[in-house]
């Protein structure tokens, strides 16, 4: 977790009316005092918020998501039921054989966000307790962060995530450990 203290003026600008500025500054200080919520802390995941498990059927998706999206064919999901837009399979690399994951993408919400559920098998907590991150990729590089999580000790982790992006702007997903660009799981 970062020790850098966020600068209030950088965050909200300097053109606020005095009363509103004081109100938001109070919240700013409270956020700093409170520290990260448990799912972002060094020792926590949000098990209490873990969503229901659901299995959905798999089928072709590339056409549904548009030209250029995951042309490798790694995405094999499609609409698996009401509210489910697609299911993406992810596998370990040559160095992380034995890992696999299923990313369920639910229907886009009114704000343009894609709620998702990532279910990972075989991924144990990192030795230094650093969280793992799910990224959208473009041309083989990390492009947009979709969320972070800590792995369960038994190797099976299910977490809710979110992609507030236009998916067709990207070409894949990867899971990395925070601070690294080496994928542990890829599409």
């Amino acid at each position: 977790m970062s020790e850098r203290r966020p600068n209030f003026d950088d965050l909200v600008g300097t053109d606020l009316e005095a009363g509103e500025r004081a109100r938001l500054l109070r919240v700013h200080e409270l956020l700093i005092q409170a520290g990260p919520p448990p799912e972002l802390g060094a020792d926590a995941t949000v098990v209490a918020l873990r969503p229901r498990r659901r299995r959905v059927a798999l089928a072709g998706l590339a056409a549904a998501l548009g030209v250029g999206l995951f042309a490798t064919g790694a995405i094999v999901g499609n609409r698996g039921g009401p509210g489910t837009f697609a299911v993406v399979t992810m596998t370990g690399t040559a160095y992380t054989t034995g890992l696999n994951a299923s990313l369920t993408i639910f229907d886009v919400d009114d704000a343009g966000n894609w709620p998702m559920e990532l279910e990972v098998e075989g991924l144990e907590p990192s030795p230094d307790r650093r969280p793992f991150e799910l990224w959208l990729t473009r041309k083989g590089k990390l492009a947009a962060l979709c969320g972070s999580f800590l792995a369960e000790a038994d190797g099976r982790t299910v977490v809710p995530l979110n992609a507030p992006y236009r998916l067709k702007d990207f070409d894949g997903w990867v899971v990395v450990v925070e601070g690294s660009e080496s994928p542990l799981l890829t599409t």
């Binding site: 020790e3 966020p6 448990p38 507030p164």
Partner: peptide, 24 residues
């Protein structure tokens, strides 16, 4: 109080708070 209040944030606003305040 603060962690409870985070529940009111819409999905597109919460990440900017988390990244700005707790991911540095």
């Amino acid at each position: 109080r603060v962690h409870r209040a985070l529940e009111v944030l819409p999905e597109h606003e919460r990440p900017v708070v988390e990244m700005g305040y707790w991911r540095g």
